[in-house]
Amino acid sequence: MFHRHLVAAAAAAALAPFAAGAEVTGEPFAYTVDGMAFEGYVAHDPARESLGTVLIVHDWDGMTEYEEMRARMLAEAGYTAFAIDVYGAEADPQGMEDYRALSGALYGDRETFRTRLMGSIEAAAEIPGATEGMVMIGYCFGGAAVLEAARAGADLQGFVSFHGGLPTPEGQDWSAASGAPVMFFHGSADPVSGIGDLAVVMEELVAAGIPHGAKIYGGARHAFTVPSSDDFVEEASIDSFAGLLEFLGDAL
């Protein structure tokens, strides 16, 4: 379980200009992709006009309170947030072995991975507070999923990866990408996808003519935005969320 006081501090600092008067509602959202049941989470403020829709792809441990917390933070900032599910409603991962099995199955079957991502994007049109403009973000495994969706040609207004898995799989490239901007928030000491991986993917984006940017946090390791992680860096977590809001303001 993540440390709620740290989450509250991060949220308060990042959302100070937005929180006044916010009446956010959050609830599960059931949908189907290719005949399979999935359950995400939607947060929005029904009392205000949405600034745009943000899809959040969960980490390798599946849909948890962390994604719900991020969805509510975005809703308090004026966005409609949809934390999507790519494991399925029946999945209930309970530990590292389950996390590896579920994420590994999608890494090993990119067609299914893309089908679930694209199906979730289609389902987003039906969520409460949905808007035409949408951006996809993700943390860790979710960050890798964001890049998968971008390479698959998802027709969104932007893509944001937080400490995600960065390498482009063999046989893939950016030729089908929509051309929407891609943003990275990454730690320079990330042992999962190092700074060299970031350089390579940014070179690929240059070659493909896709707008992109990166904010690098010196010394930060993997999962620096996750309060339950030993890698958590509160300052970097707050700053990267503020950077996300800036990106959303430009993209939506």
Rank of each mutant, 00 (worst) to 15 (best):
M1W: 02
F2S: 14
L6E: 13
A8I: 01
A9T: 08
A14L: 05
L15A: 11
F18Q: 14
A22R: 11
E23V: 00
V24N: 15
V33W: 01
D34Q: 12
D34K: 10
D34A: 15
A37Q: 15
F38P: 04
V42K: 09
P46L: 02
V57P: 01
V57M: 10
V57N: 05
D61R: 06
G62P: 00
T64K: 01
T64Y: 00
L74S: 09
L74E: 07
A75H: 10
F82N: 11
F82V: 14
I84G: 13
V86T: 10
V86F: 05
P93C: 06
M96G: 15
E97M: 03
Y99G: 12
R114V: 12
T115F: 02
I121E: 15
A124F: 05
I127A: 15
E132D: 12
M134Y: 10
V135G: 14
Y139G: 10
C140F: 00
C140Q: 09
A144C: 03
A144K: 04
A149T: 01
A150V: 01
F159H: 05
S161L: 08
H163Y: 09
H163D: 15
S175R: 11
A180D: 12
M183G: 10
F185V: 07
H186L: 11
S188Q: 09
P191C: 15
V201C: 14
L205K: 09
A208Y: 00
I210C: 13
I210H: 02
G213T: 04
G213Q: 07
A214S: 08
K215Q: 13
A220V: 06
R221T: 15
H222A: 11
H222V: 07
S228R: 12
V233C: 08
E235D: 10
A236N: 04
I238W: 00
S240I: 05
E246K: 07
L248I: 03
L248T: 03
A251T: 03
